[in-house]
Write a protein that binds this DNA or RNA. Structure first.
Lengths: 219, 219
DNA sequence: TAGATTGTTAATCGATTAACAATC
DNA sequence: TAGATTGTTAATCGATTAACAATC
């Protein structure tokens, strides 16, 4: 029998949510042919403290070198690994409406080592066609397709009312659901990883800030 | 001379970012004809503590009543107000690509009291046409249009390279920029409210979790 | 070696939770 | 009135920052 758990006292959610941002900045630095960077320099670029950067990275092990800083390519590689970009994850988009198609046409997946392999919909007019080189299949074929093709991730862009049922089905054939449907899927109810995304929440935050900025002046 | 500031010791960002979620749950409760709700009941529904709900709401004043709880419609109205849904904000979409059109076709804006009035692009083939009843204009007309039509919000869905220049222009004619471009606009550099949104970050978080869930088993 | 910068511990800060008096 | 539940203060918890010894 092996050891019980790897997790080094379980990395906090706050840290995990910052990883993609590090990933983006490091990708940019590589493009600029930057070879090394210190936590202080990166902190200025990103608008965070150097302490936070060192603390964050050390949750996963020592990626830097005293007196030198961090090797940009090496660090980028390590963070990519943490985020699973080298796992060759495969994704499908469930719901070929405007949002589903916008996601399908973006280079977001490719850039992160994920293959977006197909779309699924109920619309007979769409089934059998393709979009940006990706086939659109009937939702009836979804489960079988995912199991046979080792699909890891389902991007859920169906109408609210269909979301729960679809998530139940997907729980049986994928590892994670990226949910754009305008309803929250309670992660406890599904035996897979669920990430709910509510784009409009950020729009409302923006409105809150606009409103507050301007009401201050009136007082 | 009036008082210096309204702000009741400035509501924390953590609280503000939770408001849209309360808003969504309350909208749902109204649909279900629920008249009143206690913080305990709502906490179970949302998977947070009752303490947090009461604490959050009290940043903005007493919306409840001892011994009774919260009137759903009243509370929904108060939160709507905080989020500016009754301000009649007007938005334009800058960039009529797949994402821009997906946003333009969604009911997200209407549902939150925001009028999405037009799209802008550089593509001559699109200029002069309309999409979901919204006109598509040349980006050359952007500034003048925003000023003349009292546009409050610009949704930025242009390619990365054009984002900075566009944001500088928009700073002169709108109150807030909702930035989907794959680059971060430093809010300090622009004299308007900027909300950067990186959809793919949430996808990467999902990948991180999938990867960690499954690697645990191997140990 | 001297200088730089990490890794890591300890101190601080802020956010969350618990508790309960106020009051409907 | 008695019961329920808020508003609010105090206690706890966790996350961020500061400091510095380790070391490249």
């Amino acid at each position: 029998m092996r050891r019980i758990k790897e997790k080094k006292t379980e990395v906090s959610n706050a840290v995990v949510k910052r990883l993609p941002r590090y990933y983006r900045y490091l990708t940019e630095l590589i493009k600029q042919n930057k070879l090394r960077i210190s936590s202080t320099e990166l902190s200025k670029l990103m608008g965070v403290t150097a302490s936070q950067i060192r603390q964050d990275l050390n949750c996963f092990g020592g990626f830097g070198q005293q007196g030198y800083g961090y090797n940009v390519t090496y660090l980028h590689g390590k963070i990519s690994e943490l985020l699973g970009t080298d796992e060759g994850y495969r994704a499908v988009i469930v719901g070929a409406g405007n949002l589903g198609r916008a996601l399908a046409s973006s280079r977001m997946f490719d850039k992160r080592g994920i293959s977006c392999v197909a779309l699924f919909d109920t619309d007979e007019k769409l089934i059998g066609t393709s979009f940006y080189g990706k086939p659109i299949y009937s939702i009836k074929a979804l489960k079988e397709y995912c199991l046979e093709n080792n699909v890891d991730i389902a991007v859920l862009t169906v109408p609210k009312d269909a979301a729960f049922e679809m998530a139940s089905l997907l729980s049986q054939c994928v590892k994670g659901i990226w949910n754009f449907a305008n309803t929250e899927l309670n992660p406890e109810e599904f035996p897979v990883i669920v990430e709910n995304i509510h784009i409009a929440d950020s729009l409302m935050t923006l409105c809150y800030e606009i409103r507050n900025e301007h009401s201050e002046e009136e007082i």
